[in-house]
Amino acid sequence: MFPAASLLTTLLLALSIAASPVEIRNSPITLPIARRLNTSGGTINLLQHDQSRAAALKNVGESTLSRRTGSITVTNDAVSYIAAVGVGSPATTYYLIVDTGSSNTWVGADTAYVKTSTSVDTGEAVAVDYGSGSFSGTEYTDTVTLGDGLTITAQSIGVADRSEGFTGVDGIIGIGPLDLTEGTLTKEPDTTIPTVTDNLYSQGIISETVVGVSFEPTTSESDANGELTSYTGDIAYTPLTTTYPASYYWGINESIAYGSTTILAETAGIVDTGTTLILIASICNRATEDDTTGLLRITTTQYDDLEDLNFVVGSNTYALTPNGQIWPRALNTYIGGSTDYIYLIVSSIGTPSGEGLDFINGYTFLERFYSVFDTTTSQVGFATTAYTDATTN
């Protein structure tokens, strides 16, 4: 995380979802994290959810009005990684989705905002459309507490008067790039809002604006074991892409190959904790689309014949093993699927290649590779973990 001896002296949010976290240095702060499958609304169509989000992500450069209202079908958040975050003094605990694909922090979807002596109404209206959900309300500044005593003062907090697509969670803690907040305030649409990471840096709590994320594979509907920590292995970095609109996010250039066959030549896309699946503009036609879940499914024989899916970033190749390419079979019924089917977690992004955002490496990729989002030097880093070759699925 950010003790003097830690790697890069940074804030590293390790969203560890299995019994044992990745290798870490001792950290004085822990932040409970939980993975939840949202089954309250019945069957989850993961593909519809993620394609709706992908469509909204591509609209980042459009007018404020279209970004807020949009025409994307709203679906409940399907899979969430949730941190317990304190707001106010004394603090009320809110359970917020940790999202690298957005940058506003807001509460009120479930638990109502509680005003305290540190609450300041800025008089601004705020709204964000995520494609897979949206909120609108009033901006406040307030004290935010992460983990055991990590306190940010005067943090911008959206207080939702209305929200859609968020069930069983209270809102979002956005850790994406600063520019994603532009256009979210009504009176000052050209203004950006300092993010949680920005304020941690400006208030001297961390020395560099760097966030690290580590997921771990799990076969449980809800699992928790997270902490603010540092990775001790070797991390390979790649510069952020300059290709629009991927450049608005944690965008990188990569190519993807199935075995030795290239299925996506080097192009721009993003790394996003708010997307469940791996979405690409071109996929191998080796599977059948499942009407219920939206996922591609394969036979046992096809699974036995699967080759690695290779993500080439710079001079490094990150191989997603066959086991890493499938949805956890123990969780098939939670998404309305059949226990007898094998579902792929790789699918179509839903739009043609060549539009500047040709892939999204969602959390199913990040379960197998540690990632670092470095604002200070404009780069993203990856490293293998003990779970890269796991056979949990």
Results as ranks from 00 to 15, higher is better:
F135L: 08
D148Y: 00
S132A: 15
D142C: 09
T151C: 09
V126Q: 03
I157D: 03
V144W: 08
D148L: 05
G147H: 12
Y130R: 05
G147S: 10
I152D: 07
G131D: 14
G131V: 14
V126K: 01
Q155T: 10
T151G: 05
T143H: 07
G133V: 06
E124V: 04
L150Q: 06
D129W: 00
G147N: 06
A154L: 04
Q155S: 12
T145R: 13
T138I: 12
I157P: 00
Y130K: 07
T153D: 01
Q155R: 11
S132N: 15
G137M: 04
L150W: 08
V126W: 01
T153G: 02
G149P: 11
E139M: 08
I157E: 02
Y130D: 11
E124G: 07
I157L: 02
D142K: 05
G137S: 05
E139D: 12
S156D: 04
L150V: 13
S136R: 04
S132E: 13
E124W: 05
T145G: 07
G147T: 10
V144P: 13
Y130M: 11
G149F: 01
F135S: 07
D142L: 08
G137N: 03
S134D: 07
S156P: 12
S132M: 13
A154Q: 09
T141I: 08
T141G: 04
E139T: 01
S134Y: 15
S156A: 15
L146G: 05
G147E: 00
S132T: 14
L146W: 09
I157K: 00
D148E: 14
T153P: 07
Q155N: 10
E139A: 02
T143C: 06
G158A: 08
L150H: 05
A127N: 03
T145I: 14
D129S: 12
V128C: 02
Y130C: 11
T145W: 14
G137L: 05
G137I: 02
Q155A: 14
E139Y: 00
G149R: 09
